[in-house]
Design a protein around this nucleic acid. Structure first.
Lengths: 267, 267
DNA sequence: GCGCTGCGTTGACCCATATCAAAAACATAA
DNA sequence: TTATGTTTTTGATATGGGTCAACGCAGCGC
C-alpha cells in the first residue's frame, strides 16, 4: 500500500492546515502574515523579519470569476501566482488546436512558472470557480531570492516538484488504465485536501468531467463509466461533482494496478 | 508548418554549434573555458571573469560505460550533471515496477534537477552509450547563484524549460497517434542536433526501439511498424539506429496531425 | 410553467494499438 | 568460425477505450 506524496500528479503543492475559505469576509486581505495560507505558501521560505519584504512585492488583486483567465498562453510573462481560494486549471494548446489540461491548482499552490524560460506563458490559466490569487512579479522575486537564500532554495524545490508531478502524470498517461488514472487523480486530490486540513474522504471536484478526461487522456464517456463502475464496487459514492471515498485502501490498490486486491478487499 | 522549439520534448537544452566529439583526445579536459560546449552549457550564464568560480565547483569524472548508472532513483541528491558527450536516459519506476523513460539528454544538456525537491532523486539516469558528464554539486551552485544573479536566472529558465518539455510530452501521450509521436521525437532530435552544428537530416538514434516505445507510450512493435511505414512513404530512410530524414516538411506535417499534407506533399 | 442549453450518463459499435508468436538480423563471446 | 543472447521486424489476433448517438437532468431565462 502506498501513501501519495503531497502533490502527486499536481502543480506545485505545499503543506497546509487551513484554507482560505475560512476567511471569506476579507477578500482582499492585507498581508502574508494575516493570510491563513501562510504556513503552506511562499512565507514558509522566509523568516519572520523578512516577511515584510516578500509581502511588499505581492499584489493582491480582485477575485476571478468562474471561467475568467488569469493569463493566456503567449501572454508575456511577468508574474507567478499563488492561489488564495478557488481552483485554477492550466492548459496548453497544440499547433493543431487541441487542448491539454496540464494541472489543477488548489489554494496555497503556485502556478505560472512555465513562462520563465522564454518570458512568454506556454500555458493558459483559467478559474474553474470564483478564485482569488496573489500575484508575485517574478523579477522582483528573483532579486529578493538573491538576498534570501532560503527563498531561492524554496523556488528551486517548487519547480523541481512541478517537474516530478508532470513526470508522474507521464507515467499515468503512458502506462496506466482508465481506472488507475482516475483512482490516482482522486487520491491526489484527497491527499491535497488532507494537507489543508480538509476532509480526505469527502469533497467536491471543482472541474468538469471533460477537464478530468482531458487531463488524464481519456474521453468524457470513459470518465463517466469509470465513476459508475467504481460506485458499483462500493469504492466511491458519487453525486455529480460531490465525491466520497468509501474504500481508500481499495482505491490505492486500484491506482497501483493491483487488480488482485480488487476482489478481496482485505489487507 | 511549424518549427520546433529548441528542446521540444526534451530534458534541458541549450544552444550549441559544436560537439564534444570534436575533442575526443582529452577525455578529462580541464576547464569550462576550454570546453567546446561552453557556448551552450552553464558558462553562457556567467561573465568571462566569473567563469573561474563556476569552474571551481565543477567535477569532471571518468566516462560512464554504456549501461552504467549516473545515479539511481532514491539515491541522495547531491549534484546535477551536464552531459559532455554521449547520451543519458532518465527514467522513473512506479510502485508496481513499471519503467517510464522521462528523457534523453544530449551533450550540453543538464539533468538531475528532479532531485532538488526532496533531496532524493526520483529518476534514475543511465548511459545509453559511453558518456562523459560534468558533475556540479548543487549546494555550491546554489550559493554561487546568489552571488551571480544571471546564473540564478539561468537556472530558473532551465527548470522552466524542463517543465515545458514534459508538458509537450504530456500532450503527445494523451492526444497524439503513434505516427505523430514518433515524428515529433525525430524532429526533436533533429533540431537538437542542428543546434549543436550537426546534421539535422542524418543521425544515429542512441536509444533502442524499446526506449523509444517506452518514452512515447507505445509498444516496441508499434515503433517498428511506424518506422517501416514512414520508410514506405519515403519520409525516412532507416537502417538500424541510423536515420535519415528525407522529407522534413512532410514529417512536420505528420507530427502536427495534418494528414492532408500526407498525400500532396506540396506547400 | 415551458423550452433551451450544457453537462453527464448509457449503449452499441469500431478501430488503433496492444499482445502473442515467430522469424530474422545483429551483437558478443568463446 | 559457431553458439547464444538480444534487438528488431513482421504477421495474426484481441481488446480497451474512442466515437457516435440518444437520452436524462439541472439550471436559467422568459
Amino acid at each position: 500500500m502506498v501513501v501519495f506524496r503531497s502533490n502527486f500528479l499536481m502543480g506545485s503543492a505545499m503543506s497546509s492546515n487551513d484554507n482560505a475559505s475560512r476567511i471569506p469576509s476579507r477578500s482582499l486581505n492585507v498581508s502574508c502574515s494575516d493570510c491563513s495560507l501562510n504556513p503552506i505558501c511562499l512565507p514558509v521560505a522566509v523568516k519572520e523579519q523578512q516577511l515584510d519584504e516578500l509581502d511588499g512585492i505581492i499584489k493582491r488583486s480582485k477575485p476571478l470569476k468562474k471561467g475568467e483567465h488569469l493569463f493566456r498562453a503567449s501572454d508575456g510573462f511577468e508574474s507567478i501566482y499563488a492561489v488564495r481560494s478557488g481552483t485554477i486549471k492550466t492548459y496548453t494548446v497544440s499547433e493543431d488546436g487541441e487542448e491539454q489540461v496540464t494541472g489543477f491548482y488548489l489554494p496555497g499552490e503556485i502556478l505560472g512558472v512555465d513562462g520563465i524560460s522564454n518570458n512568454i506563458h506556454s500555458n493558459s490559466a483559467k478559474a474553474l470557480e470564483t478564485a482569488a490569487v496573489c500575484e508575485i512579479p517574478f523579477s522582483r522575486l528573483e532579486s529578493l531570492s538573491t538576498e534570501i537564500p532560503s527563498l531561492q532554495h524554496h523556488f528551486f524545490k517548487l519547480m523541481s516538484k512541478e517537474i516530478q508531478s508532470d513526470q508522474q502524470l507521464l507515467m499515468l498517461l503512458s502506462k496506466k488504465s482508465a481506472e488507475e488514472r482516475i483512482a490516482a487523480l482522486l487520491l491526489s486530490i484527497s491527499a491535497r485536501h488532507a494537507l489543508r486540513g480538509l476532509s480526505a474522504t469527502g469533497f467536491r471536484l471543482p472541474m468538469s468531467r471533460n477537464d478530468i478526461g482531458n487531463f488524464l487522456g481519456l474521453a468524457v464517456e470513459t470518465v463517466s463509466r469509470v465513476f459508475t463502475r467504481l460506485q458499483k464496487q462500493n469504492v466511491l459514492a458519487v453525486d455529480g461533482k460531490e465525491v466520497e471515498i468509501l474504500d481508500h485502501k481499495l482505491l490505492c490498490a486500484i491506482s497501483n494496478g493491483n487488480a488482485d486486491d480488487m476482489v478481496s478487499n482485505s489487507a
